[in-house]
Amino acid sequence: MKVSMRLRAYAAIAHISSLSRTAFSWALLMNGLSVGLYIWIFTQLYTATYAAAHVQTIGGLTLCSVIWLLMFVQCFERATWPNPIYKIDEEIKTGAISYALQRPYNYILYHLFSFYGRIFPTLLGNLVCGSIAALLLVGPFSLSILGLLCGALAIILGYTLDFFLFFMLGLMGFWVEDVKPFSWLYSKSKLVFGGVLLPIAFFPASVQKVVLLLPFSNLYYAASRIIVQFDIWLLLRCLTVQLVWIAILGSCAYALFKRGVRHVTISGG
């Protein structure tokens, strides 16, 4: 009973967060349109690349698969904007944390479910715009229901993983004046190692081995790859790496929060 009530509470947090995000309907639309624009740029870029290389596949991916893969990665990644780093940092700096801390919920779970809720409407808009753009530019790919379901599971874990990294960087606000450099570094790491611009399948084999074990490639790239080109071994590796990182980063986030909360000073009286 108690657990189900707590679950309802966290679901309500996700719900209101989602509702609040829909207040920015223009931002949602522009986000979706920008995904469409990126897909067009990727199509021009990779069409030229495949044509210059005179090949049908690179790293086991056809041009169509690459575009759909990047479409999913873009949709997933861009749905996290604006990222929670600034929200958490702002809560700490402005003292708004005083309300957030005195509620009967776990502060980390509150932000996690709020993050899930906020992503949802943006992701929906991105997927609609991105799919239309990809369909018009490269046509459909062979979608399997199993791939879609497993990809959905992987993306939930991917978002959870991303959240813990965002959360820890946001908590840096307890100790440093400005968290922007951390946020910048993290977003650029995702660009390079997260398969946001270049599929990791295109990396040299030795680099791929390392990159696929890092959290960055298991945020959105792994889930997108599962949706576009389902493979049971890919799924198992992705879920294992994700769960290990979630356990490590979740513990670190908890420890950091416990330490940070002792540093609350609440500016402005």
Binding site: R8, A9, A11, A12, I13, H15, I16, L19, R103, P104, Y105
Partner: peptide, 10 residues
């Protein structure tokens, strides 16, 4: 909306 949320939280 906030009141509905608080009803769930509490």
């Amino acid at each position: 909306d906030t009141y509905d949320l608080f009803a769930r939280l509490y």
